[in-house]
Design a protein around this nucleic acid. Sequence first.
DNA 1: GTCAATGATTCCGC
DNA 2: GCGGAATCATTGAC
Length: 409
Amino acid sequence: MALPPPHGHEGADGDGRKQDIGDILHQIMTITDQSLDEAQAKKHALNCHRMKPALFSVLCEIKEKTGLSIRGAQEEDPPDPQLMRLDNMLLAEGVSGPEKGGGSAAAAAAAAASGGSSDNSIEHSDYRAKLTQIRQIYHTELEKYEQACNEFTTHVMNLLREQSRTRPISPKEIERMVGIIHRKFSSIQMQLKQSTCEAVMILRSRFLDARRKRRNFSKQATEILNEYFYSHLSNPYPSEEAKEELAKKCSITVSQVSNWFGNKRIRYKKNIGKFQEEANLYAAKTAVTAAHAVAAAVQNNQTNSPTTPNSGSSGSFNLPNSGDMFMNMQSLNGDSYQGSQVGANVQSQVDTLRHVINQTGGYNDGLGGNSLYSPHNLNANGGWQDATTPSSVTSPTEGPGSVHSDTSN
DNA sequence: GTCAATGATTCCGC
DNA sequence: GCGGAATCATTGAC
């Protein structure tokens, strides 16, 4: 072992120094074999030994050299790409970083993807609540880890400082040890981040799956859609505006309306007989509504001016018995529909309505197969009648004579 | 658990 | 892009 000349002892006798170092080393080697009291006394004696600083320095240097060769490659690790990904994800999801509404952005994005229906608000708040929970857990755990890391580091540093009095531990080594501890704790942190990311992913997938789940429309929504369908049976293709209005009324999206009509058309066509009862039901309902509306219109007509055309709601399907309703009712009466006569005598229409209502009498009064809606709306080839057929004439509420093109596809 | 109903998705033709 | 048709997947009644 090539020992450099100890500081402050240059020029001292070489044999004497060797003897001193030999003594110290011997004492260090035998110190563990002695009793605690003896060891303490020896430790004290060693600390006070005049050669101690020199030997300590040398041993530190040797240790440093051997340590560097082993650990050198491990120092200054580049930032872990996986950790960076996790950090970025947590930041994007609003888990880490500043509080930004508990992932409201993610929820909003999901809402947009789902068509922007407001009925998702419950799910959104649920999602936000769960994300906030994850965020809280993450931060609590992170704090715990940091606190534990600091406590452990302090403890180890104190321990090393204490030990540095008796064994060669340089400040650099203490620093390195602190680095090791931090790395260990950051690997634990990475696990925490990974788990948090997984939790967020599961939450997201569940949220998205929930949106994909089929939910039956409300009874009211189905009623509205059915009313429209059966009152436009000759051409059940709602225009974009009508779809939007239906969507609004039913609290569903336009695409859901489209889906519903697509399914309905197919299923109706496939099994008209099965839907006959339903058709009659809605026919009766709409007929009653129409009767009320027309009666009101007549009253209005009489009180105002006998020549004033009845102008009801404009283009709205609020009163569903438009178009087909009249066509069917009139065909039931044996009357042929004349578009030019629409604006004729309102009272006669009321009479017709009353007649039909009486005739159907709740659509189950022994008329047997009689139906307000008959399959004749379908073409021989299975297609629906052209939208330009008289069936698309507007409802009485739109005012006699006005022509309403339901949906011309 | 079964089954019909029903909303959603996918494929295809126009 | 829209609609028809087939199909999937879920719901709700039994």
